[in-house]
């Protein structure tokens, strides 16, 4: 997964989302140790202080847990990950719906299109 940062929003909040995505997708498995701030910053080509801020945000949400000397770990709380996954999904669907409404689609049309495309993409 690439560390794609968009120009219109703060970088740290985008990093938070990108890391959440990695946790949800299993790229950073439950209970696993996260790379160091510096390594993560380098990987994402961002400022280490910005990465630090993103990780602190994730810690506050409880998704990451810092063990004083050992480093940062992904939470082992499955229900929390499920909740985050759901939040991300709701955001995506919201985005999608807003765009569809802009395009002039109504509820029934969206539903039909969605059903057809889902059938095609997810066999």
């Amino acid at each position: 997964m690439a560390w794609e940062v968009k120009p219109d929003r703060p970088i740290y909040s985008q990093l938070i989302e990108l890391i959440k995505l990695r946790i949800c997708s299993g790229e950073y498995p439950l209970g696993s140790k996260l790379p160091s701030v510096r390594d993560l910053a380098k990987e994402a080509s961002v400022n280490p202080n910005t990465m630090q801020r993103a990780l602190a945000g994730l810690e506050e949400e409880g998704l990451l847990i810092t063990q004083r000397t050992a480093g940062r770990f992904v939470t082992e709380d499955v229900s929390m990950i499920k909740k985050v996954k759901n939040e991300l999904a709701v955001d995506h669907v919201k985005n999608f719906l807003e765009k569809m409404i802009d395009l002039g689609f109504n509820y029934e049309e969206i539903k039909t299109l969605l059903a057809d495309m889902t059938k095609e993409m997810i066999k």
Binding site: P7, D8, R9, P10, I11, Y12, S13, N47, T50, R53
Partner: peptide, 15 residues
């Protein structure tokens, strides 16, 4: 700060 600019203006520093 870069994120302050992005937050308050909704655009990149470049823009």
């Amino acid at each position: 700060s870069v994120d302050e600019i992005r937050e308050s203006t909704g655009q990149s520093v470049d823009a």
